[in-house]
Amino acid sequence: MGSRQIVEKSLSMLRSLPRISLANIRDNPNCKKKSKRGRAQHGGDKHGAGNKGSGQRQNFMRLGYETGNNPFYLRVPQEHYYRGHHLKREYPPFTLLQLQTIIDKDWVDISKPIDIASIIKSGIYTFYPDQKQFGIHLTDEGLDNFSAKINIEVQWASEQVIAAIERNGGVITTAYYDPHSLFLLKNPKKFFESGQAIPRRMIPPPDAIEYYTSAKTRGYLADPEEISKERLKLAQKYGYDLPNIENDPNYNMLCERKDPRQIFYGLQPGWVVNLKDNCILKPKDQDLLQFFNS
């Protein structure tokens, strides 16, 4: 049959032809052809990149740069919300959920007061005092599941967070540390190995004084009596019974607070801690004592 012959013929032809490859395949119909970079008289020379300068060298200028002109993006400087951003304090967040987690995992000892040093030691939180970060902002995420009785000291906390901690019979304090003290708290070992006397904690700047002296925010410079009043007020506002910490077996622990000049729990300013010899050197000189107690 004719068709059979055609099949035979085409098969034999196929056998003799080379295998299909990228080298002998034809482009799809109507496909876009890439222009080739011509050489010499076929469009060589500058290849359409222009003569001299950034154009020819194709070192493209940074975005918005206008070769020395006052750039457009700077011509109308009106992002007012960035005004003074380089002076603003930042408090990286730490949630109540994370706090509950490290308590449940026993990464932090709640039989002692918790401060930023113990939270950093747990390894779940870090911050950079040199980047204008001033410590922990305890946020309200996981507020409903929080159920630990603790004495905690953070750098910033909202009203709900304060309520959540006090509802469980805990105590919260917001305390300011200057960046140098924060370096010490972040890595105490490094500081002790430098063989210096523990410095004093500095006072807060004027724009933070209101927060740290207010009893509502449980500031460390606030009047303790005011704070106990505010505790009661907050309990009434949020509708919970304020547990009486006076009758608590851990009353002493819950009442423990740092001195406004103190950086580490149990260590006074002016002391030298030596980790190698396992000893503490305390000054006796009157001038030193006066300086470190001022």
Partner: peptide, 27 residues
């Protein structure tokens, strides 16, 4: 440096720990 030596190697470093405290001038 001497403070550092004391802080790291303790009294074995041979540094007088009085160096660790600030002087009157420092204060």
């Amino acid at each position: 440096y001497n403070r550092k030596m004391y802080g790291k190697y303790g009294s074995a470093s041979g540094v007088n720990p009085i160096l660790c405290f600030p002087t009157r001038k420092d204060i």
